[in-house]
């Protein structure tokens, strides 16, 4: 198990290297001179030339990339052009808020999505199933920024019980949690429903029932443990993807997190922050996927057995 974990961790390295090439190319091959953009329209040619020299923009691209990569490996992602603070510091300042949101969003997604999917499957082809399935499909289709605005309208303006911005108390986090979690919730509900429908028709479930085990025990011991396997995989993979949702959520609710950091950095052409931020996001997605794989192995005895055999 540990060996597998380490191997997977090593496999993350080429992906991150690839991401660094992609994001470096996007930022540096783009039209427009960063030095010119930073100094604004009133800058003289001399100022621009000086700044270019200072930022190392006159060197060939591969040299610049080499320097970027070398520094990144030592944990130095450069300095923000706006605040002049180290990019790593900026990211770490913002990370706790994003992490909190992401964890809460996931908890919401599982807490609502799982029961919704189970209910739909247990009541297959009834109006309850139709309703649950529609809620799931709607959650997947309605833009999260619209949900955000409508929640604000409802709970901050019409019935003012929740604040619409900041992160001072738990109340601030209620709406962002829903907005961030709703898409994953929909995916989990759909996945749970189809997985559940498959499992309840399996022979081992019939056998368990035939043995006279109570319905509840069959559900918890025999059905749920098997339903969870595909759900965890999909939910985990989707979770990495849904981390992108923090961009919208943090912007709408004025939460100082990573998503907003990247959007602000793009708006103000703060390239080191964009590079570092995207790289950090990719790292998070990679780590989440890795954890999901570990969880997957822990949930499925067949896979665990494979590792044992491999050793």
């Amino acid at each position: 198990m540990l060996r597998y974990f380490l191997r997977r961790l090593l496999l993350l390295i080429p992906v991150l290297l690839g991401v660094s090439v992609v994001i470096f190319s996007i930022v540096h091959l783009a039209p427009g001179d960063p030095a010119e953009v930073m100094l604004g329209p009133s800058a003289t040619q001399e100022d621009i030339a000086n700044l270019r020299e200072q930022l190392g923009l006159n060197r060939p691209l591969y040299v610049q990339y080499g320097a970027f990569l070398g520094n990144a490996l030592r944990g130095d992602l450069g300095r923000s052009m706006r605040s002049n603070a180290p990019v790593v510091e900026e990211i770490m300042d913002r990370f706790p808020a994003t992490l909190t949101l992401a964890v809460l969003g996931m908890a919401f997604a599982i807490g609502i999505g799982l029961p919704l999917g189970l209910l739909a499957a247990l009541k297959q082809n009834t109006w309850i199933d139709a309703l649950c399935s529609f809620v799931a499909l709607a959650g997947f289709s309605i833009p999260n920024f619209w949900i955000a605005l409508m929640l604000m309208l409802l709970f901050s303006i019409y019935i003012p019980i929740l604040p619409s911005s900041g992160i001072d108390s738990w109340k601030n986090l209620v709406m962002p949690t829903i907005v961030l979690g709703v898409q994953t919730m929909a995916v989990i509900a759909r996945m749970t429903r189809s997985s559940m429908l498959e499992v309840i028709r399996q022979d081992y479930v019939r056998t368990a029932r035939a043995k006279g085990i109570s319905d509840r025990l069959v559900l918890t011991r025999h059905i749920l443990s098997n339903v969870m396997i595909p759900v965890v995989t999909i939910a985990g993979l989707y979770f990495g993807h849904s981390l992108g949702g923090v961009v919208v959520t943090e912007t709408v609710f004025s939460i100082p997190g990573l998503g907003r950091l990247i959007v602000d950095a793009i708006r103000s052409h703060d390239y080191p922050v964009v590079q570092g931020g995207v790289l950090f996001f990719a790292l998070c997605v990679g780590v989440v996927n890795l954890l999901v794989d570990m969880l997957y192995a822990a949930l499925d005895p067949r896979i665990k057995a494979q590792y044992r055999a491999a050793r």
Partner: peptide, 16 residues
């Protein structure tokens, strides 16, 4: 490995 929306934002940010 890069969330779709963040990749799109980065590209649009670079291209204008």
């Amino acid at each position: 490995a890069i969330p779709q929306i963040i990749l799109a934002i980065a590209i649009v940010g670079a291209l204008g």
